Simulated scan of single mutants.
Amino acid sequence: MTAIRILGIDPGLRHMGWGIVEADGTRLSFVACGTIDTDGEQALSERLRTLHVMLAQVIEAHWPDEAAVEETFVNRDPQGTLKLGQARGIALVVPALAGLVVAEYAANLVKKTIVGTGHAEKHQINAMLKVLLPKSHVTSPDAADALAVAITHAHHRRPPRLAAAVARAVAGSKARPA
Rank of each mutant, 00 (worst) to 15 (best):
W63C: 13
G80C: 07
V110D: 00
A167Q: 10
D24Q: 10
R158S: 13
R5D: 03
L55S: 08
E46H: 15
L84S: 09
P95N: 08
A150C: 04
M1F: 12
R49K: 15
A32T: 02
R158G: 14
A175T: 05
Q79L: 13
P141Q: 10
R27V: 14
Q86F: 07
I151W: 00
Q124P: 08
E66Y: 08
T113I: 09
H123A: 14
V93L: 15
A165K: 12
L129I: 08
S173Y: 09
G34D: 06
I114F: 00
E104K: 14
L55R: 04
S136C: 03
G40T: 05
M128F: 05
H156D: 12
S45M: 09
S29C: 11
L82C: 10
T152F: 11
G89S: 09
D77E: 11
V166A: 06
R158W: 13
V115P: 04
L7H: 04
L97F: 13
H15T: 10
G118M: 01
P159L: 15
G12F: 05
T72I: 14
I59L: 09
A127C: 04
G80D: 04
S173C: 07
D24H: 10
H52L: 13
D142P: 01
L13N: 01
G12D: 05
P159K: 15
T81Q: 04
G118H: 00
A164V: 08
A143D: 06
A167H: 12
A103S: 15
M1A: 11
I151Q: 00
S140K: 02
V74I: 11
A120S: 00
L28K: 02
L28T: 01
A68T: 01
E121L: 12
E66N: 03
A103R: 14
V53I: 15
D24A: 11
G89H: 07
D77A: 09
S140T: 01
W63A: 15
V170F: 09
V21C: 04
V102E: 03
K174Y: 10
L28F: 09
K135Q: 11
A175N: 04
A144G: 12
G25V: 05
H153D: 05
V53R: 14
T72L: 15
E71S: 05
H123P: 10
A146N: 02
L132G: 07
A67G: 02
Y105H: 12
A43H: 11
V93M: 15
H137V: 14
L100K: 03
V102R: 02
H52G: 12
I59E: 08
H137L: 12
E60D: 14
T26S: 12
I20A: 06
R157T: 02
P160F: 06
M1G: 10
A107S: 10
E71H: 03
D145K: 01
A107Y: 03
T38H: 06
R5M: 06
A146Q: 00
P11C: 14
V102S: 05
G172F: 07
A98P: 12
G17V: 02
I90E: 12
S173E: 06
I4R: 05
E46S: 10
V131R: 03
A56D: 11
H123S: 15
L109C: 06
A154G: 07
R47Y: 14
